[in-house]
Design a protein around this nucleic acid. Sequence first.
DNA 1: TCTGGGGTCCTAGGACCC
DNA 2: TCTGGGGTCCTAGGACCC
Length: 436
Amino acid sequence: MSESAPIQPPRFGLIDANAFYCSAERVFDPSLRCKPTVVLGNGDGCCIALSPEAKALGLKIGTPIFQVPDEIRKQVQVRSANFALYGDISARIYEILAALFPQVERYSIDENFVDVEGLPDPVALCLEARERILRWVGIPCCVGLGSTRVLSKAGNKIAKTRSKRVVNAGALAVFHATPENIDQLEVEDVWGVGRRFAERLGREGVRTAADLARLPADHVRARYGVVLARTQTELRGIPCGDLELEEPDRKEIVVSRTFGRDVVDPMDALATFATVACEKMRGRDLTAGALWVWLDGNPFKGQGFHVSRAVPFPFPTRDTGEVLRAVRFLAKAMMRKGHHYKRGGVGLTDLVRTDHRHADLFFGPDERKERGMDVLDKINAKYGRGTMGLGASGWRVGGAQPGERRVGSKDAQWRPTLKALSPSYTTRWDQLLRVQ
DNA sequence: TCTGGGGTCCTAGGACCC
DNA sequence: TCTGGGGTCCTAGGACCC
């Protein structure tokens, strides 16, 4: 880095919600505010989000809740993940940003990149965005600014650390990162550096983002590959990519779950996953060139096996019936007497857009069946997923609702129960919040 | 008792072809 | 005796992200 390089103006902003799932639960349940709050993943297994108070108690993301000592668990408020609610709140945040910035990239459910290039006062605009999201939606955010996306991510991390547990953090929650001021950021907090790379870098004395930026570029390229080399280049203030305003087409769609218990016959579960995967695929106007199916044993009981099978379709399909037949065929070929399964999944791969398929002399789409699928999707969109299906696959995302009566014992075999699911306040009429 | 889910990209090595 | 080498495709595994 040349010593006299002028500070580059920011080009990118990253607006990232603080402990998003916990904050979203708090929007509609004020009793959770300022209390240690935990959101649990599928089947109420692991902690997938922690409020700052919960982090202060020493809880870690990914910890199974049953491993948390009783005296700690008694102090935390626990909720089951409610992705319908989080998705809806996420869309509202996006709308606010789209009204303020010329371009917005929706990067994840709780993060948006914005284009701030050439704006007269990017810091003031980001503060305004943060205020609006807090007042209008009720979600606290931090903002990072930088001349590259990696630097804006770094800025966000620094802003989060700085404003942690500061009430009315205001200006502290916006930080403009430059190659000169990232020595306070630990290298494992750099976007693109995971645990493995952080360990290896640590062994050669690299502790901070600034240390990584100073490493010789050809050394990084040779030892760590092109991905980390790009990250390093961006840390030095040289952009390697722009905002991605168009969401690229998916290359695969996967639906998988850990079962509520060990299961002998996972066929019903796999059929259900396949049905959901097909709906998701048609919702994106894609078709599947191939299918894979897999089953895992329970590694915590010394059954750490993994079996999988894949099959291509003669012609890319969007027909749930055809996919289900293939799933049954593959599953039968994999399943073994006496085996217990703890987890399973279905993946639709080699996805191509419906109108980009090439029919040939021998294979083409079955148009009657495909129109049938569209009717099915319309009915399910109107009356709720799982209203109508093919054969064994009555399904509700997220498993049973609290207090829901289950019919049939086969269901209970694999479907996890959610004990602490919050209502879908914003997406279901029957679950709107009641004001006393 | 109870251990998340859904993605992408890169690389190395083997198979195959000319 | 001498025993190529480069391109391409596929797959598995590793690393990362949220």
